[in-house]
Simulated assay, not measured.
Amino acid sequence: MRRKIYIGASIFIAVLMVAGVFLSLPYYVSKPGMAKELEPIVQVENGYEAEGSFMLTTIRMGRANIYSYLQAKLFDYEEIYPLDAILHETETQEEYNARQLHMMSGSKQNAIGVAYNRAGFSIEYKYNGVYVVQVIPEMPADGKLLPGDRVIKVDDQQFSSSEEFIKYVGGKKANEEVILTIKRKNKTKKVKIIVQPFKDDSNKVGIGITLVDDKEIITNPKVTVNTDEIGGPSAGLMFTLEIYNQLMEEDFTRGYRIAGTGTIDSKGNVGPIGGIDQKVVAADKAGAEIFFAPNEKGKSGSNYRVAVKTARDIDTKMKIVPVDVFDDAVNYLQKLPKKER
Rank of each mutant, 00 (worst) to 15 (best):
S105H: 05
S105M: 07
G106K: 14
S107R: 02
S107M: 00
S107I: 04
S107G: 06
K108N: 08
Q109L: 15
Q109K: 13
A111I: 08
A111L: 13
G113S: 12
G113W: 12
G113T: 11
V114H: 09
V114S: 07
V114T: 08
A115D: 04
A115Y: 05
Y116L: 00
N117M: 02
N117P: 01
R118T: 14
A119S: 08
A119E: 06
G120H: 12
F121Y: 15
F121L: 15
F121V: 08
F121G: 08
F121W: 14
S122W: 08
I123F: 11
E124R: 01
E124G: 01
Y125M: 07
K126V: 11
K126W: 01
K126C: 03
K126N: 03
Y127P: 01
Y127C: 00
Y127K: 03
Y127V: 04
N128Q: 10
N128T: 04
N128A: 03
G129S: 09
G129L: 02
V130D: 06
V130E: 03
V130Y: 04
Y131R: 15
V132W: 04
V133M: 13
V133I: 09
Q134G: 02
Q134S: 15
Q134P: 04
V135K: 06
V135L: 05
V135R: 04
P137C: 07
P137S: 10
E138A: 06
E138Y: 13
P140R: 02
P140G: 04
P140K: 00
D142M: 09
D142T: 06
D142A: 15
G143M: 05
G143N: 01
K144H: 04
L145I: 01
P147R: 02
G148K: 11
G148Y: 02
G148V: 06
D149N: 01
D149T: 07
D149F: 04
R150F: 05
R150V: 12
R150T: 10
V151D: 06
V151G: 09
V151N: 02
I152N: 11
I152L: 15
V154T: 02
V154R: 04
D155V: 09
D156L: 02
D156F: 02
D156C: 00
D156Q: 12
Q157I: 13
Q158I: 14
Q158L: 11
F159I: 00
F159G: 03
F159E: 03
S161F: 02
S161L: 05
S161P: 01
S162F: 03
S162M: 11
S162Q: 07
E163H: 14
E164V: 15
F165P: 07
I166Y: 05
K167N: 12
Y168I: 01
V169S: 13
V169H: 11
V169I: 15
G170I: 10
G171T: 10
G171Q: 09
G171F: 08
K172Q: 14
K172G: 07
K172H: 14
K173I: 02
K173H: 02
A174M: 12
A174C: 11
N175I: 06
E176S: 01
E177A: 05
E177S: 10
V178R: 08
V178D: 07
I179D: 07
I179W: 10
L180A: 13
K183M: 12
K183C: 06
R184Y: 11
R184G: 08
